[in-house]
Design a protein around this nucleic acid. Structure first.
Length: 829
RNA sequence: GGGCGAUUGGCUCAGCGGGAGAGCGCCUCGUUCACACCGAGGAGGUCACUGGUUCGAUCCCAGUAUCGCCCACCA
């Protein structure tokens, strides 16, 4: 068994040439392993869970998900959308998602089939389908039962547009324009304390000032209080090592919450919380209770309901009027955290969320995960460093709950007390047999639907899981873990996880984590990381940049084998530049295989080629010399060619075993061009029978042996052309044939001498060069060829002399011994 | 700021202690006899730079520069 954890692509996006590239890499491995006799488990899945699908379904059907609504089995989306989106239940939303993504999936499937991916379509899964939801929830509940999943009320990164919490792994920073403002706080003695900030609007949320311990500028202030401008709140001045004397004025305003450091100070210094930002990113209506003065409350009223940008405008105006703005705005560009799919900076908001232990607060677990990473073979190996950087840099547990409507629900309910308040500390879990459940639609075990929201009744958890909460179980989902234990037992752990390197911190890490938490196992033994495909200007292809190359056009224009050739020539981990000109190379190779095969097979035995495969007219008749069975390879040149082929087979096999598909392709290709350009030309006349039956049949046998092996070496890369040629003369499919073994060609290599090939190639090249230099046709006869070389070289040349003379149209040859390192050729035309 | 990777002919890339290579592009020539969706030949590079190790360095080591990426950085 060789099992692959195929990436489930997000179907709401567009397939681009980069996906083709990495999927081709994996497919070559799958085909190689299949030819090696392995049973290849090569599933296919679609990721239709999560925000991209949510948005797309909303826009397409003009609906929105409202989990509080009951399921409507007869729901029909509006044919002509009105002004407002129609609210539908989660189950209706899931159905619409499946309907819409079905169309997308068909388009993706068409590309994959045309590309020749050898996935098993019968294994197809969707991350939102019933089995995936059940496995995802089962996995979560097992984490819960073991204490790995837990709820907590805590400050979290919050996207104000989508109004959901997000995890550390989904944060990216972007360089944006900002400005420094210098604000005057007032010390007890009336002295002004200037504090620099880029977020003056958070002044009403200020709970303290901090300076570095030992900073002489502020040592007198530490332990005292100062009064905030406008709001007149007394806040302590404290010391903490995270305060940076070099930033701003060296003393920082601690707010609820401006950034992650504020959270640290809040926690470590035991400060109060004065939240001012609501979940919609706007200032809440009432000021923090600490603002008691009339002036302060009046100032806050001007901020209530404002966005952060609006509030910043307002508050700087107020500060300026009050004379408390000492300096600014002084423009700066600085990095700000964004949700990777978001468009506004992340805020930090306190909320109740579910977390999954991931080593971010547990060094022992982190160590175990690092160790798990070391037990995986990374291709290329240096990608492991990225994983280790990420695991070592985690600053908290995995926040897995999302305040979205579409996704896999967190499968718990809460009992309501007599006052109708949920008791979060004693969640109710579903029976395993009932999975998947939707707590917002289904009642928990032992309750009636009518008790929903009633005192003494229950409330469903409204949240869904992070999309990675499901994707991190793709090995289990594909293997139908907990559903088909026989399959799962044979397939897990898998052999290979292919994926993009930018999601090491999410998909790869989370998958490793879930597997480790579940039973301490590894999800797979190898991880293959693909690079990116860059556009011809070396920019990363992305939808927003508008430089995406869609694959179907390339597939149609150049043929699937050509596209695969180009993709497979890229090595793992290395970015590739898309260049349409390079696609022609693969196309040329595929056509060359067709033509060379036609030539080899036309030499006989007859009947191998269908009538359409050859041009009409004279086929050299081809019964074997003595009836059935392959003829003996007797000519030294033929043996030498097969000897080289045996080495190439070994080389290709080694490369594939090391997950170096590009190396395998390069080795096969180099041999094939030698085979066509030199060997074929050298033996052509002999194969036609011009030197009699024995030598002719030696060539014909060698040609067929080589062709059979070469087709199989190319089969993982060029499945179409190899299958076509294979069908001309051999039974079954080349893709089910055995991967070539050097032993197949070695019996025919008696007397093989690699020097023969070098000597022959060099001599024919010299003859061609002479003709080309004289601007003569290659068919021009050579009146005399004089070779001066060392004895071993001449011996090698002697072995192939008849072939060389025929190929070069040489009429007379003379060999001379000499001591020169390099042979010398004198050619008289 | 920490880390990883890259730097080889016009372009895309192999190679890697001892001859500097391939394909594309370019130039020249050549079709009865597998292939014009072609073949043959040619020009073109101080292998980023500086040191070191070595009998010998494109290759190993150290440093520098440039590019790309990962992570951290919001006062």
């Amino acid at each position: 068994m060789f099992a692959i954890d195929t990436p489930p692509l997000t179907v709401s996006g567009k397939l681009h040439i980069g996906h083709v590239c990495s999927f081709t890499h994996t497919d070559t491995v799958a085909r190689y392993q299949r030819m090696r006799g392995k049973e290849v488990f090569y599933p296919i899945g679609w990721d239709d869970n999560g925000l991209p699908t949510e948005r797309r379904v909303q826009n397409y059907f003009h609906v929105r998900c409202d989990p509080s609504l009951p399921y409507d089995p007869g729901f029909v989306p509006p044919a002509s959308p009105g002004q407002d989106q129609v609210p539908v239940s989660r189950r209706n939303f899931v159905e619409l998602c499946e309907r819409l993504t079905d169309l997308d999936e068909q388009a993706f499937e068409e590309v994959w089939r045309r590309l020749g991916l050898s996935v098993d379509w019968s294994t197809m899964y969707r991350t939102i389908d019933e089995h995936s939801r059940a496995i995802s929830q089962r996995g979560f509940l097992r984490n819960l039962a073991r204490g790995e999943a837990y709820p907590a009320q805590a400050p979290t990164l919050w996207d104000v547009t989508f109004q959901t919490a997000v995890a550390q792994a989904e944060v990216e920073d972007r360089e944006v324009a900002g400005a420094y403002y210098r604000i005057a706080f007032q010390a007890g003695d009336g002295e002004l304390v200037p504090v620099a900030t880029t977020r003056p609007e958070l002044l009403p949320a200020c709970v303290a000032l901090v300076a570095r311990p030992g900073d002489e500028r502020y040592s007198a202030l530490i332990g005292t209080t100062v009064r905030s401008p406008l709001f007149g709140v007394e806040v302590p001045v404290l010391a903490h090592h995270l305060a940076d004397p070099a930033k701003g004025t060296g003393i920082a305003m601690v707010c609820t919450f401006g950034d992650a450091t504020d959270v640290t100070w809040w926690r470590e210094l035991g400060l109060p919380a004065r939240p001012v930002l609501g979940r919609d990113g706007r200032f809440v209506a009432s000021p923090p209770a600490a603002i008691t003065s009339r002036a302060g409350r009046a100032a806050y009223r001007q901020l209530a309901g404002e966005t952060t940008a609006g509030a910043r405008q307002r508050i700087t105006g107020l500060l300026r009027t009050a004379g408390d703005l000492l300096a600014g705005p002084e423009p700066v560009r600085h990095a700000v955290n964004f949700y990777e799919k978001g468009s506004q900076p992340l805020e930090i908001v306190t909320s109740r969320q579910w977390y999954l232990r991931n080593g971010g607060r547990d060094p022992e677990l982190a160590q175990a995960l690092l160790e798990a990473g070391r037990q995986i073979d990374w291709h290329p190996a240096y990608m492991r460093t990225r994983y280790e950087n990420w695991v070592s840099g985690l600053n908290g547990d995995w926040l897995v709950s999302r305040q979205r409507f579409f996704g896999v629900p967190i499968p718990v309910w809460y009992p309501l007390d007599a006052g109708g308040q949920p008791r979060y500390d004693t969640p109710i879990v579903p029976a395993d047999a009932d999975l998947p459940v939707d707590p917002m639609a289904d009642p928990p075990p032992g309750y009636d639907p009518g008790q929903r929201g009633q005192p003494g009744g229950f409330a469903g958890d409204p949240d869904v899981m992070d999309t990675w909460g499901t994707s991190s179980l793709t090995p289990q989902i594909a293997a139908r873990w907990s559903i088909d234990d026989d399959l799962a037992g044979r397939v897990l752990p898998m052999d290979l996880r292919p994926q993009a390197h930018e999601i090491i911190r999410t998909w790869l890490f989370y998958t490793l984590l879930r597997s480790h938490l579940e039973d301490g196992s590894l999800p797979w033994r190898h991880a293959a990381l693909s690079g990116w495909v860059l556009d011809p200007d070396r920019k990363k292809m992305s939808k927003s940049a508008g430089n995406v190359v869609t694959p179907m056009d390339s597939l149609r224009r150049n043929g699937s084998d050509a596209v695969r050739y180009w993709a497979a020539s890229g090595r793992l981990g290395v970015d590739m530049t898309f260049d349409p000109a390079q696609l022609k190379v693969g196309r040329r190779l595929a056509i060359k295989i067709l033509n060379a095969s036609r030539f080899v097979l036309a030499l006989g035995p007859s009947g191998d080629l269908p009538s359409g495969a050859l041009p009409s007219g004279a086929l050299p008749s081809g019964e074997g010399p003595s009836g059935e069975g392959p003829a003996a390879v007797t000519e030294p040149l033929d043996s030498a060619m097969l000897g080289r082929l045996a080495q190439v087979i070994t080389q290709c096999t080694r490369a594939f075993e090391a997950y170096d598909h590009a190396g395998a392709l390069a080795a096969a290709e180099e041999f094939f061009w030698f085979f066509c350009d030199d060997y074929l030309e050298l033996v052509k006349d002999r194969a036609y029978g011009e030197r009699g039956d024995g030598p002719a049949w030696s060539a014909r046998s060698a040609l067929r042996l080589a062709l059979s092996a070469v087709l199989r070496l190319f089969a993982p890369f060029l499945p179409y052309v190899t299958e076509e040629v294979w069908s001309w003369w051999l039974e079954g499919s080349v893709h089910r044939a055995a991967w070539p073994d050097p032993a197949e060609v070695l019996p025919a290599t008696d007397g093989a001498d690699a020097g023969i090939l070098t000597a022959a190639s060099a001599a024919i090249a010299a003859i061609r060069g002479a003709k080309s230099g004289a601007r003569m046709s290659m068919r021009t006869p050579v009146r005399a060829l004089v070779v001066a070389a060392r004895r071993d070289h001449l011996d090698a040349l002697m072995a192939v002399l008849p072939d060389l003379q025929a190929a070069g149209r040489v009429e007379h040859t003379e060999l001379r011994f000499c001591d020169r390192a390099e042979p010398d050729y004198q050619i008289t035309l």
